[in-house]
Computed example of a mutant assay.
Amino acid sequence: MLNLRHLYYFWLTAREGSIAQACDILDLAPQTLSTQIATLEENVQHLLFKREGRNLVMTPMGKQVFAYANKIFDITSQLEDVLQQSPDSRSIDFSVGIASTVHKILAWKVIKPAMSIPNEVQLVCKTACASDLLLQLKQKKIDLLISDYLPHECDRDGLTAHKLLSTPMSFFYKKGEVANQMKAGFPGSLSDADFLCYGRQTPYLGKLKDWFKINDIKLNIKAEIDDSALLKVLGQSGEGFFSAPSVIAHEICDQYNVEVIGVAETIKEDLYALYRDTSMINPALEQLLNFKVQDA
């Protein structure tokens, strides 16, 4: 019979990447934990870990066992939640990772429906680069990753990808006479105008530059800004024009006192939800996946 406690010790060690980190969580001595894992290896008659220098890495069989253990302890964790509280009264923890290249207004637009379930939702949002958040998703530190690009298939092992929406890109400028003139002459009016460019390598950035080239628009990049909210603040101050997904154009115009001066229909911003494969889905996540955001 497979000893689930021994399997849990192995799984936690593999997830954390070292005996020392797993010991801190389990409050066990390193020798005790090593002995328990060795007992599991003896019982299953397979070596699950091997040493490479000072690092502890999984063997091919260890990786297979870890994949099954992931599913076992994911379901176990969900069962514990169900047993601790009645379905009608328990609050739902919902942890969302938002790739730093995703516009935060857009992220909230797709997250908001998850807050409408009958249960109280304890929402936690984390922003970082997509690769870091992808690792956290696999380690069960977050429930969902919202990303504007789809990772390679090999990086999505054990994960499900769901396309949330696809929207063209709009261009914005501070409300006033200049905005009216730029709108009337769009897209030629963008040539030599000050452009506030997103500083990170977003999936649509290459398409945007191609679009400028096709339309014979000479780019004058005034600033490259990593933070999408700061970029809009500069746009609000009249420092230049900027681009953002059309599906959130109304919210951007209201919040930042800017207006749409034109739309590039051929440039699409795609948004994806990535979550772990499991037979039981967080109710907040299920609500988010079932909600359809209308394309702009």
Results as ranks from 00 to 15, higher is better:
residue 178 V to Q: 11
residue 168 P to D: 02
residue 113 P to R: 02
residue 206 G to E: 07
residue 174 K to A: 12
residue 230 L to I: 15
residue 192 D to M: 14
residue 143 D to F: 03
residue 131 S to F: 10
residue 240 G to P: 01
residue 211 W to E: 04
residue 128 A to N: 14
residue 221 I to Y: 04
residue 217 I to M: 04
residue 232 K to N: 08
residue 174 K to D: 03
residue 199 G to P: 01
residue 182 M to S: 05
residue 199 G to M: 01
residue 104 K to I: 15
residue 185 G to F: 09
residue 197 C to M: 14
residue 151 P to W: 04
residue 172 F to P: 00
residue 215 N to C: 04
residue 221 I to L: 03
residue 229 A to K: 13
residue 175 K to R: 15
residue 160 T to E: 14
residue 162 H to N: 11
residue 150 L to A: 03
residue 227 D to E: 08
residue 214 I to C: 09
residue 136 Q to Y: 11
residue 230 L to D: 10
residue 138 K to V: 07
residue 191 S to C: 05
residue 111 I to S: 01
residue 225 I to Y: 01
residue 114 A to R: 05
residue 112 K to F: 11
residue 213 K to C: 09
residue 201 Q to P: 03
residue 207 K to I: 01
residue 154 C to V: 14
residue 148 D to F: 03
residue 171 F to M: 04
residue 110 V to P: 00
residue 98 I to S: 04
residue 224 E to I: 00
residue 223 A to V: 01
residue 192 D to G: 06
residue 106 L to P: 00
residue 193 A to W: 12
residue 233 V to Y: 04
residue 170 S to D: 07
residue 209 K to M: 10
residue 204 Y to K: 04
residue 140 K to T: 08
residue 211 W to G: 03
residue 124 V to N: 15
residue 228 S to V: 14
residue 190 L to I: 02
residue 136 Q to D: 13
residue 158 G to F: 11
residue 148 D to R: 06
residue 131 S to A: 13
residue 138 K to D: 06
residue 117 I to F: 08
residue 112 K to W: 09
residue 238 G to F: 08
residue 213 K to Y: 12
residue 153 E to P: 01
residue 162 H to I: 05
residue 107 A to C: 05
residue 92 I to T: 07
residue 214 I to T: 15
residue 229 A to R: 13
residue 118 P to W: 10
residue 225 I to H: 00
residue 124 V to W: 15
residue 230 L to K: 14
residue 191 S to A: 08
residue 218 K to S: 09
residue 194 D to Q: 11
residue 216 D to P: 02
residue 239 E to C: 12
residue 143 D to N: 14
residue 103 H to R: 12
residue 232 K to W: 06
residue 175 K to M: 12
residue 115 M to L: 15
residue 135 L to W: 11
residue 134 L to W: 05
residue 176 G to W: 10
residue 231 L to T: 02
residue 211 W to K: 07
residue 195 F to L: 05
residue 211 W to S: 08
residue 235 G to C: 02
residue 161 A to Q: 11
residue 147 S to P: 03
residue 149 Y to Q: 09
residue 96 V to N: 04
residue 107 A to I: 07
residue 181 Q to V: 10
residue 106 L to D: 00
residue 181 Q to H: 14
residue 182 M to I: 14
residue 192 D to C: 12
residue 149 Y to G: 02
residue 182 M to H: 06
residue 96 V to P: 03
residue 230 L to A: 09
residue 128 A to L: 13
residue 160 T to V: 15
residue 166 S to G: 13
residue 208 L to G: 00
